[in-house]
């Protein structure tokens, strides 16, 4: 690995000051599972590495009064897996943060790191999108918020400006009769990058019989994770019993803009966008119904 200076900062302001001083040669180090691999392989370079894990508030998971969550940037996936509220009230997010990497990656990797790495295949981003998460960004001119949906702009690129740091994610409280799920497809059963992924969040009404709102986001089938508004538009207000899964799959496939690469083919990814969306929708509906009534038996997927 190339030589660099290491700065374990203890406040956000320190990090901002270093970023301002060192400019493009500075890189933020969070869990390090992407950055260090990339530095070793020469895919990124750094003269200064700014470790933000020792900033106390960035390791906090705050439960907000409105039922939402303030998630510090340095919180690891492992911490979240042990967080009861995260597991139970944010199921789509839990699905995603629980399967990033293996156990040893989980011990280091952070959700914010996964987001800022901006891989089209990032597992957490589709789930963050359907959970309507906001990204809290500190910069030279103060704090700003952007929705996750608009955060990634291209593979490895985001809306972050030079000198900015993502300090937290704000997860809004789930509404009543809410369910969400994230599913991905990988060729092995662990230790793989998603060939395709789908997150679905539903808000039901009428005691689980009607869609109030539906949000769908796809991963690894476009240059960035994609929000699929067409499915939400199609389903909002309609009875759950009348939904055509073939139609949903078809809408998901139509929204996918995949490529063929070493991890999968274009046709496979387009097809999987449909398969995974339907499967995630079923789980999300199930979870939404369970949130108000005893768990119904779900048909085999």
């Amino acid at each position: 690995m190339q030589a660099f200076d290491y700065h374990p900062v203890s406040t956000v302001n320190e990090a901002l000051a270093l970023l301002a001083r060192e400019g493009a040669g500075a890189r933020l180090l969070n869990g390090g599972t992407d950055l260090l691999a990339q530095l070793k392989e020469g895919r990124r370079s750094a003269n200064h590495v700014i470790d933000i894990k020792r900033i106390p508030e960035l390791s906090e998971v705050r439960e907000l009064q409105d039922g939402g969550i303030w998630l510090g940037a340095a919180v690891t996936c492992r911490t979240l897996s042990h967080h009861a509220v995260w597991r139970e009230r944010f199921p789509g997010l839990h699905d995603a943060t629980h399967l990033i990497g293996g156990v040893q990656i989980q011990g280091r990797a952070t959700v914010v790191g996964n987001l800022c790495n901006a891989s089209p295949a990032a597992d957490s981003i589709p789930a963050l999108i359907v959970h309507r998460v906001q990204v809290c960004i500190a910069g030279p001119s103060g704090l700003r918020r952007v929705p996750v949906e608009g955060f990634c702009t291209a593979p490895g690129r985001t809306v972050l400006l030079p000198g900015e740091v993502v300090v937290a994610l704000e997860v809004p409280p789930p509404p009543a009769e809410f369910g969400a799920a994230y599913l991905r497809f990988i060729p092995r059963n662990e230790m793989d990058i998603a060939v395709a992924g789908a997150a679905v969040a539903v808000e039901l009404g009428g005691e689980g019989s009607r869609f109030q709102s539906v949000r769908v986001a796809l991963g690894a089938v476009g240059p960035t994770p994609l929000a699929v508004d067409a499915i939400g538009a199609r389903l909002a207000g309609r009875p759950v019993a009348e939904v055509s899964l073939d139609e949903i799959a078809s809408l998901a496939r139509a929204a996918a803009r995949p490529i063929s690469d070493l991890r999968g083919t274009l046709a496979q990814r387009r097809h999987l966008a449909g398969v995974l969306t339907v499967r995630a929708l079923r789980v999300a509906i199930d979870r939404a119904r369970r949130s108000v009534t005893p768990p119904p038996l779900s048909p085999p997927l």
Partner: peptide, 27 residues
């Protein structure tokens, strides 16, 4: 799952244990 994946220029694309997929304990 295991295979060497080359591009048209003859470059090996999956020269890592992430993308050269040997079975894990879960497989």
């Amino acid at each position: 799952n295991e295979e060497y994946v080359y591009n048209e220029k003859g470059e090996l694309l999956n020269g890592s244990l992430l993308d050269y997929r040997m079975p894990t304990a879960c497989d």
